[in-house]
Design a protein around this nucleic acid. Sequence first.
DNA 1: CTTAATTTGTTATAATATAACGTTTGTTAT
DNA 2: ATAACAAACGTTATATTATAACAAATTAAG
Lengths: 134, 134
Amino acid sequence: MAQKQEYLSKNQQIVLNLIEKAKGPLKAYSILYDVQKKGIKAPLQVYRALEKLIKIGKIHKIESKNAFIACNNSECEISKATAFSICNNCEHVKEIKNTKLSKYLSNFQDNSGMKYKKYNLEFFGLCKNCKLKQ
Amino acid sequence: MAQKQEYLSKNQQIVLNLIEKAKGPLKAYSILYDVQKKGIKAPLQVYRALEKLIKIGKIHKIESKNAFIACNNSECEISKATAFSICNNCEHVKEIKNTKLSKYLSNFQDNSGMKYKKYNLEFFGLCKNCKLKQ
DNA sequence: CTTAATTTGTTATAATATAACGTTTGTTAT
DNA sequence: ATAACAAACGTTATATTATAACAAATTAAG
């Protein structure tokens, strides 16, 4: 489980800190708003930091929400294998840690002859809390 | 396998025809451009048609590409269970038909107590063609 | 040190998507 | 057939998400 050492630049560190202390996924422009006090002024500065953080696996993008969340899972080495559960009611998002699932998907092969190097899975439903309230 | 009969409105039919005859996923504004000769003038007209077509399962959205593709799969009843393979090189997108996979994911449960009603899975890699060319 | 690569700051703009409004069309129940 | 309701329409304006292009500053490696 060797951790690839990555040195983050100032902007990358600022953005990562914010995302890591957030309760859920953050959107790019909300990140921008929050880091303006730290001197980051333009969307591109945020997007560039996000791009790098995704590349090194520190965060993931929730594609269906255009939002970004800290990686919470040692299984998804460098963002190659991601799975999330998303509550349709409260919008709560959680990264799924499940070895069987990740093995199943990482080894998945269909008849197309394509070898998959990466996947992203998003499950939708009602979380326990919201199920009770209905 | 009873087919739910759906009557499409004029705009919905125009947009669906275009998507169905396309070779791959189409983006909303490219759809708009293509259907202007048919009288559709504004983005919202396209987005409304897309929304309905997704709802009734005629098309799917490829979230990582913000693009729309015709449904090619009797397994994904009303868009509840979708899986795609996406080539990182040529951008070719194909809906995956695989009963085992869809059963596995539809029945997937983790320890969160959440019952999943819907999922979207996107696999990335190199398709057979692009693998050869490398 | 110096060369190359990465990151930065900045302005402008592209691409994607929705709000709000009033009108028209289609469906259902009488 | 018509009233009542729901769905779809057309239109304008605007919100949201993301990237292009360029020059300067910083950092890593030979």
